[in-house]
Design a protein around this nucleic acid. Sequence first.
DNA 1: TAAATTTGTTAGATGACTCTAAGTTATTAC
DNA 2: GTAATAACTTAGAGTCATCTAACAAATTTA
Lengths: 218, 218
Amino acid sequence: MHSYTEENYLKALFNLSADKGEVSANELSKQLGIKMPTVNSMMKKLSEKKLVHYESYKPLRLTEKGKREAGLIIRKHRLTEMFLVQKMGFGWEEVHEIAEQIEHLHSPNFFERMDALLGYPKIDPHGSPIPDKTGKMEWIKYEKLSSCKEGDTVRLAAVIHTTDDFLKFLNLRELSLGVKLKIKTVEKFDGSMTVSHNKKGSDTLSHIVCDRLLVEKL
Amino acid sequence: MHSYTEENYLKALFNLSADKGEVSANELSKQLGIKMPTVNSMMKKLSEKKLVHYESYKPLRLTEKGKREAGLIIRKHRLTEMFLVQKMGFGWEEVHEIAEQIEHLHSPNFFERMDALLGYPKIDPHGSPIPDKTGKMEWIKYEKLSSCKEGDTVRLAAVIHTTDDFLKFLNLRELSLGVKLKIKTVEKFDGSMTVSHNKKGSDTLSHIVCDRLLVEKL
DNA sequence: TAAATTTGTTAGATGACTCTAAGTTATTAC
DNA sequence: GTAATAACTTAGAGTCATCTAACAAATTTA
Ligand SMILES: [Mn+2]
Ligand SMILES: [Mn+2]
Ligand SMILES: [Mn+2]
Ligand SMILES: [Mn+2]
């Protein structure tokens, strides 16, 4: 088994290298709030454990084993978030901090039970895919709202870069997953959008907001 | 906040000193599976933090602050066990190990929510009292089944020294909390009892078993 | 009460994770 | 293409929780 600390490095590596497949020690250091020399020695350690490919002055890459282990931790994180929202009545803005702790519990039974009680969910409360029991994650390709055009009708499918503040902002506007949006206007000069949403009136969303909302075109 | 480790020392001190109000470093060492010198230095540390009264060669005593903090950890442990049984469908023999980990989570909201969903329970699945939000615990005085007499009718109220094995043993005999027992015979020479229980026939329970069952006389 | 045993303490070391300071290599800017 | 900057590595140290070995005090046994 890996330590709490090692698990956090693995998770950060997984999340940061999601697109390019590699990360710089620098990014990792910033993400974790841990100084470079510390990260450096942990990378050597994870390399010893065959979880990370480490070569001096080269970007970091998770091994297949590393990806699998990281996927399993993310699985626990996301199952937990789903459980907290669906079964314990928390808001989607409240669950991340709690899941950060619960993801490190060692109890296959506990997570099995959560999974079963939730009916084997495929996504978490923020629309992120839940890795399967082997640590594999199915990427669902959504579009950013910011890349949609006037007249498009879309369904809100996921949010990215979720912070409490951002999620509370969405709560206020009743923007939750599954909501249907019609794009009324797109401002040329700042990329802000006016969208109408269900029975409610219309809202104007800044480019920054639209960039963090993933949608499915209808 | 206290570390995971410190919390485990506090909890062990609380449980071991429940009756006499004090513990020897030796008992504590055995309970935790940690060698004496380690315990010794931790006691000095907890003494610095005003959680333990420490004097060389004297028994250890929790301070009022120490009792309160320990009570709060035990509260989290027992609320968790109750949640796992009542809301997640675990058996009473499965929950202790999981609760040992969850009791260390730092999230007032999480435990508040558990408490509310459970309807503010006063006892855990093994019949142990759940300390209140100030860490205070109401001791309920039950009798040991082993101290009851032929002809007594009692209700099973709690189990002590609960191990998985013992709880599974009780499961097989359908001995769960609340069950009504009538004491048919008590063997003089070994203290074993024959009890009849609800519709089911009667069971013979060894003295060791009877000594671990707490009952309420009816 | 003196000896033997148990319990508690001190000293010194280790591994895990973190840091700062000081170098080294790679990248970017001019 | 050199100089400046950024990224990375090495060296050395600190904290926390643990250990073993050796010694001291208290308790038990005879
Ligand atoms: Mn999260
Ligand atoms: Mn999430
Ligand atoms: Mn327990
Ligand atoms: Mn416990």
